[in-house]
């Protein structure tokens, strides 16, 4: 049976929501699941991790050196900890992507990036070419499989368990070549289009630059970034850098709201990884409805303000 080590991620002292999705991937592999948490004091996060369904053990690796998530510092400790595990899984976040290869290289293992599906303990689907081609890969089982998990492909496990929490320490030599200076939250008023969890986009149906106000207003209410279709950009309603689609930005938010966007293929190519798509369009035949999770045939000039009011 597989013995799976999940490297948890902590944000603001709490367990990052991605960890529950990595546990879901571990559950798909099937095996004994341990979550390891690194930090100066991870007790709060450990308590959350212990509740995740399927987790049998939570390991706390606490030290002053672990206060900030430095790949160069965590990696030697993870390598040491990995002995005896068949799999080491990381979240497909900036933290996981930074750290996992450092562990894999030290173990002499070719990493699997962005697992979407685990067919077996050694066979996985992963995206290539920006998600335009999915490859099924077979990874050598020995010495271990190191992988990152594509969070958008998994649904978080529940939290009704009660796993044991243990402390572990590491004797690995830690480098001094990397020093944390600071972490600044993004200052911009609106989230960045490419990084945002929620995006509201407007299309040519808005008819003018001025009319885009209702899109901005809804976005602000939702804490969302604002995007636009190429038609809206070409019509000069909004600047180029707001264009979502194949020749503009490719985004993968949790929630995408398309208002007055017909859904030309260029646009759809840019949002195919969005978790949930909401489409509001007057034209019931608009192609956007073919891919939308929720579709509303309505005039956006009434529906968008109404939606804003009711959120």
């Amino acid at each position: 049976m597989s013995k799976i080590l999940v490297i948890g991620e902590i944000s603001d002292g709490k367990l990052n929501s991605g960890t529950a999705k990595v546990v879901a991937a571990a559950a798909q592999i099937k095996g004994d699941i341990t979550v390891a948490l690194f930090g100066a004091d991870v007790s709060a996060a450990a308590a959350d991790a212990a509740k995740l369904d399927g987790v049998t053990k939570v390991l706390k690796i606490e030290s002053a050196a672990n206060a900030n998530p430095l790949a160069a510092v965590y990696a030697p400790q993870i390598v040491e900890l990995a002995a005896g595990y068949s799999h080491v899984l990381f979240p497909g976040t900036a933290f996981g992507k930074d750290t996992a290869p450092r562990v894999a290289a030290r173990l002499g293992v070719q990493q699997v990036s962005d697992i979407m599906v685990a067919h077996s303990p050694t066979s996985f689907d992963r995206p290539t070419y920006a998600g335009n081609a999915i490859v099924t890969v077979e990874a050598p089982a020995a010495p271990a499989i190191v992988a990152t998990v594509r969070l958008a492909s998994f649904t978080a496990v529940g939290s009704s368990a009660n796993a044991a929490i243990e402390s572990a320490s590491s004797s690995a030599a830690l480098p001094s070549h990397t020093r944390f200076v600071k972490l600044e939250a993004q200052k911009s008023e609106r989230p960045d289009l490419q990084a945002a969890a929620r995006v509201v986009s407007g299309g040519r149906a808005l008819g003018s630059s001025d009319a885009f106000k209702i899109i901005y207003s809804l976005a602000d209410k939702m804490g969302a970034a604002v995007g636009a279709s190429r038609a809206a950009v070409d019509s000069g309603y909004v600047p180029n850098d707001m264009q979502v689609g194949q020749t503009g930005k490719i985004i993968a938010p949790e929630l995408y709201v398309a208002a007055g966007i017909s859904g030309a293929i260029q646009h759809l190519a840019g949002i195919k990884d969005a978790r949930t798509i909401v489409a509001i369009n007057k034209d019931a035949e608009a192609p956007i409805f073919e891919v939308a999770d929720f579709g509303l045939v309505a005039d956006l000039f009434t529906a968008v303000p109404e939606l804003e009011g009711k959120l």
Partner: peptide
């Protein structure tokens, strides 16, 4: 090295639910 056993096109998104009101 990983062995690539198959390459496939991504699954198409399927049509969801049409709602009637906001």
């Amino acid at each position: 090295a990983l062995t690539i056993s198959k390459t496939s096109a991504p699954p198409k998104r399927s049509k969801g639910i049409m709602v009637k009101t906001v």
